[in-house]
Structures are given as C-alpha cells and as structure tokens.
C-alpha cells in the first residue's frame, strides 16, 4: 500500500475511533460537573458520586443486578457446558446440526420476541414476575453463548486422549473431571465471562419479565432517562465504565495467559 493511502487510512480510523468514544467520554466528563445538565460544565465536583452512594434504592438495584449476573452466569455455564458435551457427542452429523440451530435461536432472535415469549411462558406457568422470572430468563439467554464458547475446545480435543484415559482404567466420571474439564476450561471461563456481560447488558428481556417490585440497572436507567437528564446517571456510567474495563482486562488476561501457555506447550512438543 502506498504511503499516502495508509496515511488517509490512519486519519480515517482516528476519526471513527473519536466518534466511537466521544459519547462515552462526554458522559463520564459530565459526571464530574457540579451543574445539573449535560450542557455546561460547571467545574469539577464529586457531588453526583456522593448522591449515588447515598441513593439506597440505586445501590440495592446495583446489588440485584450483580447478583442476577453472577447467579445466572454460574447456572448457565454449568448447563451450557453440559449442553456442549451433548452437542459434541451427538453421533449423527444431522442431529448435531439440528441441535446447533436450535441452540442459536435465542442468540439471533430479537430481544422483544424473547422478552414477549418469556412473558407469555411465565404467566402461563404462573411463575410470579420478579427475581425468579428475571433469573430464569437470564440463565436461558446465556446458555447458547456458553455452548458456543465451549464447543470449539471440545472439538479441538483429540479422542485418543479419552481413549487413553479409559484404557488406563479411568471411570466416566474421572475422564470428565480429570481429562475433559481441564482441557476445555478456557472455553468455560470465556463462556462464563460472556454470560456475565450478556446479563449486565440486557435491557429488553428484563424489561418484559420483571414485574413491579424488581428492577435491574438497565431498566432503572431507562426509566430515569425517559424523565430527562440527571447527572447521577452519569456518575453511575462512570462507575460501570470502570467495572467493564476491569472485566475486559481480567478476561483478556485469562485469554492471553491461556494462549501463551498453550504456545509454550506447543514449543515443548516440537522440541521433543
């Protein structure tokens, strides 16, 4: 590529990156403003963070959100990993394909459809709307992504590994806990993290299946944003930004760590 066009390309990505980040930076900058609108910056202050930490209702909602995210991710990771094993062990290619397409229905279907259909489902089963309906829905829409994160690792695993273990007298349970699970562990961790982010990010499904008493952060932000601007939300954005930044860093640290150890192992095998 010629020099000039690569300069043009760099200019282009700088502009797009600026556009991608301006809204986020704008939001966080105003969380430190002492004013009350997102129009004039009135000097640095932490009052909105103070308000945030004294807003007991919001803190309770924050804890609810985290609780739902963690619980649903644990359950969906377990069920999703079992599901990935099921898909992996499907004998016929056809049944594997069917399972995979059923699996991805919730991943591609629009949020409103998922929310509306879960609402019908819960009311026809007479499940009360609130914590449990939200938790069950979150588990439900996180399972397929866990399956998709675990399955590639399972497919990578050579069957001779399992044969060797069985030949050496391992029981089915031992094969699973000593051979399969350690091998697919990076996929499981990646699935768990994806599940957490799906849960934290969800608005539409929760909005449909949460009754009156229970709220998560997304739903709360929505109802507050409909009333107009309150810089307390900006402060909340600041904190959530730091939170997601930490999640991203932890996630990539685990990913890279896994990759580098794998690379080391590969090297060892080559030198042998």
């Amino acid at each position: 590529m010629s020099n000039q066009s690569s300069k043009l390309g760099k200019l282009y990505i700088i502009i797009v990156f600026a556009l991608l980040y301006i809204p986020i930076i704008y939001l966080i900058v105003y969380s430190f403003s002492s004013g009350t609108t997102m129009a004039n910056f009135n000097g640095f202050s932490l009052t909105h963070y103070g308000e945030l930490f004294h807003d007991n209702r919001l803190l309770a909602i924050f804890l609810n959100t985290i609780l739902i995210a963690l619980l649903s991710s644990v359950f969906s990771t377990i069920i999703g990993t079992l599901g990935a094993l099921g898909v992996h062990n499907a004998k016929k290619r056809h049944s594997r394909q069917t399972l995979l397409s059923l699996n991805s229905i919730l991943l591609v279907s629009p949020d409103v459809i998922m929310g509306a259909s879960f609402l019908i489902f819960f009311t026809s089963l007479k499940v009360p709307l609130g914590f449990w309906s939200v938790l069950l829905s979150h588990i439900a829409f996180e399972i397929p992504i866990v399956v998709l994160m675990v399955l590639p690792r399972l497919d990578e695993m050579s069957p001779s590994l399992i044969n060797a273990a069985t030949d050496l007298g391992a029981t089915a349970g031992q094969v699973l806990s000593r051979v399969i699970l350690p091998f697919i562990q990076p996929g499981i961790i990646a699935g768990f993290f994806m599940a957490i982010t799906y849960s934290l990010d969800d608005f539409a499904v929760t909005f449909f299946v949460t009754g009156n008493g229970f709220t998560t952060l997304s739903v709360e932000i929505y109802s507050r944003a409909r009333q107009g601007i309150s810089l307390e939300i900006n402060a909340l954005a600041g904190i959530m930004f730091i939170f997601s930044l930490i999640l991203v860093i932890v996630y990539y640290f685990i990913e890279n760590h896994d990759q580098s150890t794998r690379r080391k192992k590969d090297k060892l095998e080559v030198t042998k």
Binding site: P23, I24, Y26, L27, F203, S218, I221, A225, I229, A237
Partner: peptide
Amino acid sequence: INLLLKAYAFIG
C-alpha cells in the same frame, strides 16, 4: 458498556 448508557449519552 451498557446500551442504555450509550443511548442516554446521546440524549445529552
């Protein structure tokens, strides 16, 4: 970053 927060930023 939460979708709602990004939408909210644009309101401002």
